[in-house]
Structure formats: structure tokens, C-alpha cells
Write a protein that binds this DNA or RNA. Structure first.
Lengths: 329, 329
DNA sequence: GTGAAAGCGCTAACAT
DNA sequence: ATGTTAGCGCTTTCAC
């Protein structure tokens, strides 16, 4: 258990100098610094970060609140986040909330008890449910419009409009939607884009075409079953994430409905699996890694500087055309 | 910034009593304890865990080393892990190694610098590459046979044999394999099961039928392309994980090879997506959540007691028959 | 440029 | 059952 005192003794300096050699090398003469470094190396000294963190009232930990880690979109985002955080000397603490607000409370306690310096929230903001304490360093990632704290995201409304525009350009006019939960902000933002597109094309909005899912594959399957029972089926289906699109597509096909010949399907997220469905899925590519990196960057700045020059970071998305949408013209 | 001293003053006791009320409530009289609790509540006192951890030389953090968080099998395992850890008062620190040993080194530094109490390793043990320091509390999860530290896993060899046995029982004799990297221990264990099955059935092992992948979808696709170019194609394909199976299946189909009519496909892991492929994938269900929970449990025991009553925890797997395998008989 | 010393918030002997 | 006190390993004034 070699500590700072031992190194000081070996190097023949005071513990203050050892500390300075690490944290403020410029305040130590080149010669003594060398002596200290050498002592550290021969004794394989590793500063006790618990003491360091305690003393400097910084944990160098970022808490990420994720509704479902098993969704590869979130997992990929977190990979980016972690990659960046690591380069800045921060580690990431995982908080899988299972989409339950009460679980968030438990994790937020890590902040209060000083075990994390800030949080990255992957669940879109909900005014009713949010329990963000004041002055908590927090940034939203892949969130929604109107988040009251800094956030990094794409323009969900515009992206949804892009998808719908494309469906319409392919001759579809009866376009179904498999949405997330009605009061989820992603659902709202994306539905707005869908409706805008319809409106511009002069197609009347038909709410019976919107089926409520909850961003899970099981819900995508259920939604597809509802589509199967409709008398007048849509010719195309816009699913608000790839998980639901993948499940819906499979459900449709296993019930004898061909994709895209009978019903076209589009997704949202561009998780890797969407490239390997049959047919490969047309979808919106959210730059998951980049959103994660950027969110980490903003959070760390917020922690270290106490403020951000800018609060909204809207990243570009890409529309990926594959083979799950058929042209009607 | 309300600290233990303030609470002591408010409650009219010493700081020792405040500390005891929290950590050893039985050593404090009911009456004073109530006073202390009340003071804590009215002042919303949250103990500074950085100080607590520092003082007790425990970080209450578990480091999980994962080769690729975007693989839902790992993500699901981690969910289980985290769920259990949380109940025991531990948090999980994420270390995505991108399957690079040198990245492991960076993360293991978190242990040396006392920022984590132990590690859960999700990459199977490799004698050549492993850099596990002595006396490091570590448990392997979803690892391989012969791991020199405690591990929680299924019997990979037996599971692979189960799959192959089934394929043979359906009349297949020319069974291809898409494996992981040749020197990966999962590849070795599972290949052994495959060969055992063949041997018992009196089928000669043909190494030209084994195509090396690397557990990624991209490699599954490449492997499938190799199968497509074979003169004498296998009638069935055993893929060593679902990601490769999913990619292979899609590649086969998009090249006009029907699954399972022309080639049967089986996977390994039973990630959720394998239920929604077309056709749904026959595969081995690894109890990911349960492996994660159990691994966390063992690691915490190891940390707190310094030893484990038992070092090998082999959990049951399940063979899931869906529709991607056809009977030849 | 360097050292002496105080102290971060808490825990745990030790004393009463 | 409760209080006094030393000290965990480190950072940072404050002197020199």
C-alpha cells in the first residue's frame, strides 16, 4: 500500500511536492519532478483516487440514466458517451431505469451522495414526471424538443416528416403509424412531423391509422396484429423505432402479408439489426455514437465550467433508403 | 452543505453517535436514534459517500468489462448484474473494451486507483492475453471452461452439442459452422461440442465446413457469402451466436437461398431479435439476466468475504426450437 | 521552488 | 450508551 508519504520519503521531498508533481507539474522544478516520477515508477505508485476525489469534491463519474440498455440504440449511444468520457478522465455509472420514474429517484441519489458529478438522461423529458433537482448538472441525449436543460438530439419532427414525405413520394396515401406511448415526447414530436407531411400533401389525418406501441418489439408485434385486423389496411407503416418495425415486419410476413409488396414499412434509429432484416429496413439514422460523445462533452463542460455557451445541440440525421418500402407509382 | 457535524449539533449528540445511528443502529439507544433521524430528515442530510467510501476503503463500485455493449446479449446480462448490484448497495461502472486487451488495462487502473472494488469480465478468458493482477476480486460471466477465477456460465460445449444433435436428428449430415475467432475460448468450447456430436453420429469432421467469423453481424454476412460460393453447400449452419446467424440468414435469403428449405440455420444466445427474424431462429437460450445477477452476487461475496465457497457456477441453458431448421426426413 | 501544517467528512478505537 | 479523538490519503494555503 504505497502512498504519497512513502513516495515523498523515497524522493526526499515533502508530500506537497509529490502532490504538485502530479497536479501542477509546472509549479515544480524539472529536476525534482524527475526524482518524484522515478520514485513513483519504481514503487508502482497509484494515487488513491478515493482520497483524491474526496479531497477535490469531484467523483469524476457520470451517471447515465437509460430506460432500457438492451435497446442497441441506447447501448451504442452509451458506447460513444463512454469513449469520450474516458478520454477526459471520467467513468460512467450505469442506471437502467426500466422506464420507471421511481427508479430514477434511486439513481439520482448517487448525485446527492456525491458519487457522481452529473447525469446524462436518455429518457425524453416529461414535464409531469420529471424530478430533476435544481442546479443538478444534467444533459439530455437523444431527447425531445422543449427539454428544460441542455440536450443533444436530432430534429425528431423533421426526421419523421422526412420519412413520411418519402412514403408519400412513393405514392402512399394511407400511411399507418406505430407510435410510442401517447404521452411520450418522442411520440409527440414524431407524430407532429408525420402530420405536417400529410397536411402539406393534402392528405387528411386519420387517427384510426395511429396505433399506440411502447417502443418495444412485443408492442410492435401487437400493433402489427391490429393492422392485420383492419378492414382497410394502410399501404405503408411508419414505425417510430426500429425495434417495433422489425417486430411488425416479421408479424406481417408470418401472417402472409408481404413486405414491401403488400405493406411497406419504415423505421427509426438505424440500429445495426435493421440492415439485416428481410427486406432490409428503410429508416432514419440517428448518429448514436456522436450524440453520446457530444452529450458527454457538454456534461463535462457543464460540470467543470458551471455553464454552457449553448443549450441545444441538434445533430444531423440521415435518411437510409433500403428495401422495405415499395413504390406505388 | 449539511454534514455530519451539523446534524450532531442539531440533535445535541456527538458526531460519533450520528455515524453510529447510520452504520450500527443497534449500538444506539432508540431514543437518541430517533432524534438523530429526525434531524437528518429535516435538514435533508445525505452522507457524503465520497468521505464514507474513502474512510471505509470501499468504493461500492463494480467494474464490468464488456467487449461490445451493442450486443444485446451482453446488455441484457448487464441489466441483471446491475439490478442485483443495486440491491446490495453497489453501482456498476462501465468498461467497453471493444475487444482490445489494451483497453482492459486502462479500465483495470480503476481498480488500482481504488475507484472500483472488483470486476466482472465478460470476455472469455484467454491465457495468452489475460492481464489479471493477483488478488484482484474478479468473476467471469458467460465465460468459458478453464477460467482460472470464479465464473458464472452455461456449459458451452454441451449446448453446442445439443444444437448439433438436433440438426443431426433432423436428418442433416453436412453441417456447416460459422464460428468466432479461432483462438476465442467460446469458439473452442462450442466447436468441441459440435465435433463430439458429429463423432457420436459417426459423421466425419470436415474442417472446410467451419468458417471463421468474429461474433459480429458483418462477419456473419461474410461467412454466409463464403457458404454461397461453396460447391457442395451444407444443408444446415450452426452459428456460434445470434448476431452472426441473423446476418447469415439474411445474406443467404437475399441471394436466393431459402431458409430453412435450402439451408437450415441455428444460432446461440437467444437475444430478443432472434424471435423476430424470418423465419424465427432456432437457438440456445443463455439465461443472460440470471448470469448477470449471479455474477454480481458472487463478486460482492468475494469482495466482502474475501473468498467464495465455490468457483464454478454452471447455469442451465434452454434449447429453443423455432422455425429456422427444417427436417430432411 | 519547496515544506509545514491544516483540514476535507467520516469511522472506529478508546475512554467514560 | 455516548463522547473524545486520531487519522484515512490527499490538496492547498501560507511561510520561507
Amino acid at each position: 500500500m504505497t502512498n504519497i508519504r512513502e513516495i515523498a520519503k523515497i524522493a526526499g521531498v515533502s508530500i506537497a511536492t509529490v502532490s504538485r508533481s502530479l497536479r501542477h507539474p509546472d509549479k515544480v522544478s524539472e529536476k525534482t519532478r524527475q526524482k518524484v516520477i522515478e520514485a513513483m515508477e519504481t514503487y508502482e505508485y497509484r494515487p488513491n483516487m478515493m482520497a483524491h476525489n474526496f479531497r477535490s469534491t469531484r467523483s469524476y463519474k457520470l451517471l447515465v440514466l437509460v430506460p432500457n440498455l438492451a435497446n442497441p440504440f441506447f447501448a451504442t449511444l452509451i458506447r460513444g458517451l463512454e469513449d469520450y468520457a474516458q478520454k477526459r478522465g471520467y467513468s460512467v455509472l450505469l442506471g437502467d431505469t426500466r422506464d420507471e420514474v421511481q427508479n430514477e429517484r434511486i439513481y439520482l441519489d448517487l448525485i446527492n451522495s456525491k458519487q457522481a458529478d452529473g447525469v446524462i438522461q436518455l429518457t425524453p423529458y416529461s414535464p409531469e414526471e420529471s424530478l430533476v433537482p435544481d442546479h443538478l448538472p444534467i444533459v439530455g441525449a437523444a431527447g425531445c424538443e422543449g427539454t428544460p436543460y441542455p440536450s443533444v438530439r436530432i430534429d425528431n419532427t423533421e426526421a419523421a416528416k422526412t420519412v413520411t414525405d418519402y412514403l408519400i413520394s412513393q405514392g402512399h396515401r394511407r400511411i399507418g403509424v406505430i407510435s410510442g406511448l401517447r404521452d411520450n415526447r418522442h411520440t409527440m414530436d414524431r407524430l407532429r412531423g408525420y402530420r405536417q407531411s400529410l397536411e402539406e400533401a393534402g392528405i387528411e389525418f386519420d387517427k384510426s391509422l395511429v396505433i399506440e406501441g411502447e417502443f418495444t418489439m412485443a408492442s410492435g408485434q401487437m400493433a402489427a396484429n391490429q393492422v392485420l385486423m383492419m378492414d382497410e389496411k394502410p399501404t405503408a407503416l411508419f414505425c417510430m423505432n426500429d425495434d417495433m418495425a422489425i417486430a411488425a415486419m416479421q408479424t406481417l410476413k408470418s401472417n402472409g402479408v408481404r413486405v414491401p409488396e403488400d405493406i411497406s414499412v419504415a423505421g427509426f434509429d438505424n440500429i445495426e439489426y435493421s440492415k439485416y432484416t428481410d427486406p432490409p429496413l428503410t429508416t432514419i439514422d440517428q448518429p448514436a455514437m456522436e450524440i453520446g460523445r457530444m452529450a458527454a462533452k457538454q456534461l463535462i463542460t457543464l460540470i467543470e465550467d458551471g455553464e454552457l455557451p449553448q443549450n441545444r445541440f441538434v445533430l444531423p440525421y440521415e435518411f437510409i433508403v433500403r428495401e422495405s418500402v415499395r413504390s406505388l407509382t
